[in-house]
Amino acid sequence: MSSIQSPDIEFCNVSKLFGDFVAVHEMDLSVPKGSFVALLGPSGCGKTTSLRMIGGFEMPTSGNVLVGGRDMAGEPPYRRPVNMVFQHYALFPHMTVETNVAYGLKQQRPRLPRDEIRTRVGEALEMVQLGHLAERRPHELSGGQQQRVALARALVNRPQVLLLDEPLAALDKKLRTAMQIELQSLQRDLGITFLLVTHDQEEALSMSDLVCVMNEGRIAQLGEPGDVYNDPASLFVADFVGKTNMLSGEVAGLSDGIAEVRLDNGTMTSARAREGLAIGSKATVCVRPESITLAASQSNATGTVHNRIFLGPSADYAIDVPGLGRILAQVPAASAVHAAGANVSIGFEAGTAIAFPS
């Protein structure tokens, strides 16, 4: 992330209503200049509406949207210092790949020299691995190739802010991973602000400097990827971002930010306490699968392996624990293999469990 912390994008008490439906509710957001930020959340949480308000395709019902310190009220999309990569491509079907990418450059005033346009278009196409398809038309390309053309068309103008509406959704896994690396490298090289909308948690955590988790039109948590994953601010964030085991229990003790929780099967466990817990209150203890140890010498519970899924470097175990239900554990594949039906002891790595009010 850039060391310059002046915001490129600001939401000041922004709300957006569609009739009686509140898509975005009194949202305050500051996106640092030169950063890569992901808006992450389930369908209907307001992330795409927020992106469209920055791009000028929706206007806020109340509040102010600023880009580069300038209020965008009343500014049409073509006058904003942003470019947007749409989820559904929006390519010109009668143009070749090359002329699609060159279109924005040809509209600039004063006009750019032809050689400069040709050079920049070539660089953009090579970046998305489509230089050899420059003369084809969109209908001759796969969905993933069309999405890459849309990406090149947006990047070739080198906007102050690039808005990305799930731009990699149509790509296969291998190419999507390669494009994630390319996007990160490009963002660092150009130093422009990238704002990515996605429902793919892995994509958001792996690509961005900051993750903004949204729910019901509000920001549930804004922070660095490691903080959002390892230190979720709410039960919603813990449940939505990544896989987690949610264990019910009752608070038996509280001291120095640590809750002693009696789980529903009678087992006592320690967890980092979130606000709102009180002795005797119901709690939900969240533990990531990779934080669970199998056959630990000091166990929290004993269960039976339901099944094992081999994932290459790791293996997922579904373990049925009486009184707690099914627990997911992820362990190195090289560790001891436990067959379906085997009894195992499980434990939590110290400091990894978090207790939330139920």
Rank of each mutant, 00 (worst) to 15 (best):
S2T: 09
I9V: 15
G19K: 10
F21P: 13
A23I: 08
S30A: 13
P32I: 10
G34W: 05
F36Q: 03
T48S: 15
R52N: 12
M53C: 10
G55C: 08
D71V: 06
M72N: 07
M72G: 03
M72A: 06
P77F: 15
N83C: 05
F86Y: 03
Y89H: 02
L91F: 07
F92C: 00
T96P: 03
T96E: 01
E98N: 10
P110N: 06
R111N: 01
A124S: 03
H132C: 01
H132G: 01
A134M: 01
S142N: 06
Q145V: 14
Q147M: 13
R148T: 11
R153H: 14
P159D: 02
L163Y: 02
D165N: 00
P167E: 01
A178V: 14
M179K: 00
Q184L: 05
D189S: 13
L195K: 08
L196W: 06
H199P: 02
D200M: 13
Q201C: 11
Q201L: 13
E203S: 10
E203A: 09
S208A: 13
D209Q: 01
D209L: 05
V211T: 01
R218E: 12
I219N: 00
A220Q: 00
P225Q: 01
P225V: 06
V241A: 07
D256L: 09
G257W: 08
A259R: 08
A259W: 05
E260W: 07
V261F: 05
M268Y: 12
M268W: 06
E275C: 09
I279S: 10
S281K: 12
K282N: 14
S291G: 13
T293S: 06
Q298K: 09
T304W: 00
F310K: 04
A318K: 08
I319H: 01
G323V: 12
G325L: 06
S335Y: 10
S335L: 09
A342W: 12
A342E: 15
N343T: 15
S345H: 12
F348V: 08
A350C: 11
A353C: 11
F356Y: 15
